[in-house]
């Protein structure tokens, strides 16, 4: 009788220990699951097409010993994460943050997911590399301003504008892009940012109307630095690959931005309508 009780007690103690261990394990697993969700949301937020986001997330999940099921919507991502060892599942819903587009994050985070699988990194290493990648500084603002100005000026050249038009477009682009970055720092609604910076750029380039130059081309190209090329192309990629929902969302967003660009440009056109015809 006594022996039997003792055994029971022992069994109970073991049982408690098991529960505690599995709770600790569950806690770390939950942490890892949250990390996977954040990884997916970050990829989606910084402008990567949907199929790559899904592939990368599944891969990094695999490296941590999870089976990840994921469905991506325009504003949020739903993940169900199955721990292969304990067969527990975790559900995560995470909102997609609105981040500036970054190809650097795209390539480095994709590389991280491969490295995690191929070099068998543990969770701490992956997390450390992830923080390192997303906190790396962006390009110098002044250099960026110069590059964008040069780019738009040479764009003007591609449309057969002359040298004077190129100079005017260069100045107009720098003015417009400067206004855009300043407004973005103040977190103003991005539709308004697009209208204002398109108006500023086209207003500056309307100076071309007073010279004997290719003024129509100067006006047309001065706002083109605002064209949201990345969501346009990502949208088409998504639709072609079958992620129609996110694809159409991207295209709709890009279209709205283009409409805003056109509104900003049309203010200038209406102001100077007389000298354009």
């Amino acid at each position: 009788m006594g022996i039997c009780l003792c055994n029971k007690r022992n069994g109970l103690r073991f049982h408690n220990k098991d529960i505690r261990q599995s709770m600790i394990r569950n806690e770390t697993t939950l942490q890892q699951a949250k990390f996977i969700a954040e990884y997916a949301a970050h990829l989606m937020g910084c402008g990567i097409h949907t199929s790559r986001v899904i592939r990368n997330t599944k891969r990094i999940g695999e490296a941590l010993g999870f089976d990840v099921k994921i469905s991506v919507f325009q504003k949020s991502i739903i993940l169900t994460i199955l721990d292969n060892e304990s067969q527990h599942t975790f559900s995560e819903v995470i909102e997609i943050p609105a981040l500036p587009i970054s190809f650097k994050h795209n390539s480095e985070l994709s590389a991280l997911s491969w490295e995690a699988v191929d070099s068998h990194l543990n969770f701490e290493q992956i997390n450390e590399k992830y923080t390192q990648i997303i906190s790396a500084p962006r390009m110098n603002a002044l250099l960026l301003l110069l590059l964008v100005g040069l780019a738009n000026a040479s764009f003007c050249r591609l449309f057969k504008g002359d040298w004077l038009s190129m100079l005017i477009v260069f100045i107009a682009t720098i003015a417009g892009f400067f206004v855009r970055t300043q407004l973005q720092k103040r977190h103003i609604n991005h539709y308004i940012i697009f209208i204002v910076s398109a108006f500023v750029a086209s207003l500056f380039s309307s100076a071309a109307l007073f010279f004997n130059t290719t003024s129509g081309i100067a006006l047309a190209t001065s706002v083109l630095y605002l064209i949201p090329g990345v969501p346009l192309i990502n949208g088409v990629i998504d639709i072609v690959e079958g992620h129609t929902l996110t694809g159409i969302t991207r295209l709709a967003n890009a279209l709205l931005l283009i409409v805003c660009l056109a509104i900003g440009l049309s203010f200038t056109l209406i102001l100077f309508k007389g000298s354009l015809i």
Binding site: F103, H105, L147, A151, F155, R157, G229
Partner: peptide, 24 residues
């Protein structure tokens, strides 16, 4: 050659807005 040259500058400048890795 000129067409290609100006297209290259345009590609670099417009690409720079989206923050590509330096090596690319």
């Amino acid at each position: 050659l000129f067409d290609g040259f100006f297209a290259a500058i345009a590609a670099i400048g417009f690409g720079a807005i989206s923050d590509p890795p330096i090596r690319s």
